[in-house]
């Protein structure tokens, strides 16, 4: 290795520094270096390591389909782990949109949600959906949560 050792060290350090600039919180990275890191990392090395950061979400959320007044179930009920992940991504995206003041979810999210219950909808006709949230009141007692239900406007999408 010998002389080439320094070439390897330079390549590895540069790559790691650019990835750090791309993934660390924005306030820690100078703007110019941040832009450079986005240009370098986004196309091929995109990654995000914000698991439960900066804080875990204060509200759990689920999208539920309303079959009738006695039968309301999660859109991923009895499905596998990848379906659970998809349903959770849809629920978090809709939760975030509603929190920003949008009155109805984006059409592509509604389409995704309806696709997950496509077999039920073919059988029962147009279905209604709701966002089911369970929110902490006191962070020191996280198991005590209040339930918040938001009906979703999806009929015309």
């Amino acid at each position: 290795m010998g002389r080439n050792r320094w070439v390897v060290i330079t390549v590895v350090v540069l790559h790691t520094l650019l990835l750090l600039a791309y993934t660390l919180p924005v306030q820690f990275i100078p703007g110019m270096f941040r832009s450079l890191s986005i240009a370098y990392a986004r196309p091929l090395f995109h990654q995000s390591w914000q698991l439960f950061a900066p804080d875990p979400p204060p509200c759990s959320c689920t999208i539920e389909v309303i079959m009738n007044e006695n039968d309301i179930r999660p859109i991923d009920q009895d499905r596998g782990y990848l379906e659970h992940r998809m349903a959770q991504t849809i629920a978090r995206s809709i939760q975030s949109e509603l929190a920003q003041g949008d009155s109805s979810p984006r059409p592509e999210l509604v389409r995704a949600m309806k696709r997950m219950v496509g077999d039920i909808e073919r059988e029962l006709g147009v279905l209604e959906f709701q966002l089911h949230e369970e929110c902490i009141v006191d962070p020191q007692s996280p198991t005590e949560r209040i339930v918040r239900i938001t009906k979703l406007k999806t009929a015309d999408q």
Partner: peptide, 14 residues
């Protein structure tokens, strides 16, 4: 692991 640790320092719950 380093980045996820640093990101947690910017909140309050951790």
């Amino acid at each position: 692991y380093f980045v996820t640790g640093i990101c947690k320092l910017t909140g309050s719950a951790w």
